[in-house]
Design a protein around this nucleic acid. Sequence first.
DNA 1: CGAGAATTTGATGATGATCAAACATAGTGG
DNA 2: CCACTATGTTTGATCATCATCAAATTCTCG
Lengths: 240, 240
Amino acid sequence: MSDSTSMRRRAAHCSSCAMRHLCMPEGLCANDVSRLENIISVTRKIRRGEALFRAGDPFDSLYAVRSGSLKTLVTHGSSRDGGRERVTGLLLAGDALGLDGIGDGRHTCDAVALEDSTVCVVPYALFERMCRETDALQRRMHRMMSQAINRESDHVVRLGMLRADERVARLLLDMSARLARRGYAATEFTMRMTRDDIGSYLGMTLETVSRTLSRFDKLGLIEAHGKSIRIRDFERLRSI
Amino acid sequence: MSDSTSMRRRAAHCSSCAMRHLCMPEGLCANDVSRLENIISVTRKIRRGEALFRAGDPFDSLYAVRSGSLKTLVTHGSSRDGGRERVTGLLLAGDALGLDGIGDGRHTCDAVALEDSTVCVVPYALFERMCRETDALQRRMHRMMSQAINRESDHVVRLGMLRADERVARLLLDMSARLARRGYAATEFTMRMTRDDIGSYLGMTLETVSRTLSRFDKLGLIEAHGKSIRIRDFERLRSI
DNA sequence: CGAGAATTTGATGATGATCAAACATAGTGG
DNA sequence: CCACTATGTTTGATCATCATCAAATTCTCG
């Protein structure tokens, strides 16, 4: 563990926030919940721009975002542009991450903090064992992974058949909905990703992202000042 | 079950093909293997163009392709073009499918046969219970889902940052590699999807797919006669 | 405050979509 | 088995969208 990250025992905090999302203790008896809290008892801080893990790192834990936000990205070992990177995911508080590593025991993408963030660490070996013993937890795990698959496939659909302005509109609405679900304001939020990140995530250039946001602003759909976004007209944004 | 599909008990067949891929019996004792064979003992036939399941159908089984091939697609309940569909996956013999349904108990996409095909049916309730009892099987299940997530995210990357000809080249190489892994010829195969399906899968129009294949043919990279493809120059195809 | 990073905006051009029409192939019924 | 119709494929011509190049401006943070 580098000096730039710290580990702490925080069972109380974890169980009160991220764990509820990650593990959905519904159906777990008090005894199970306390065992689970024991497994998920370490918090890790990641400072803006730092990586929680990188592609190729050995996989040993899942994570749940406790505060802040992260992006996942793959570095495309490709043909001509030797190594452009591509943003594949945007994780907010409560989201689980690290599932990619289960496949071959190594992470397949980088996870980088978009702002100073904290995550709950879930040692996979322990978690897996507990899944086997507690059927509600196993069910929750399977559902979580299935939903991750569906999210990705939604994203594929969006990328493949929407125009640039439609993609941007969807992203804004998606952010809004996700934040609302977490109890934050749905109309006003901060896009932590740079225009470049957004472009990479949506499959377009940063200039097109910028132009699109400017246009939305002029049309009165949103108010965009740098990273801060305010949605003014959900209806028209949806109908784009 | 409609008359166009039939169900049969076929433990022997299933265990000898799809089950090996789906469940990777390594680490299972003889007793476990026989229990598993008992769970996966029904085969279902789907004729070309018919659906194994549709979005919205209640989820109760996973499937493993035993012969033939299928595509998965989502019908995009979208803004202006009221309901275009988008191909999200291409499944070959040995591939698992149906994982999308675990999330909310309903399938989120259609699975349609590209040719007359058969699948092994894996009742999920039984399978899930057995996962809980057999750790090797649970591990296999988790890895399978994780790999599904990674495959999708690869696809996202391809769609978002590759040009049309690069996407087509990747698809051909991907097909070739997957067939080779199954013991089929790597250089010569039949693309069961129509140009329209391919375009939908790769996020471009059928005309562009057709043009690209024609160009590859003229350049001596492949030989394309309708759906039959022969790869003539892997190196140059990779370097596109 | 100052330097590097990020953003905005403009001008231009290439890639791929769209429209259109000829052609091939496969499935169907006489 | 063949003709016929559906469906799928190829190819061409034109045009829109978005990428690229470039430069000015604003933001951020050390």
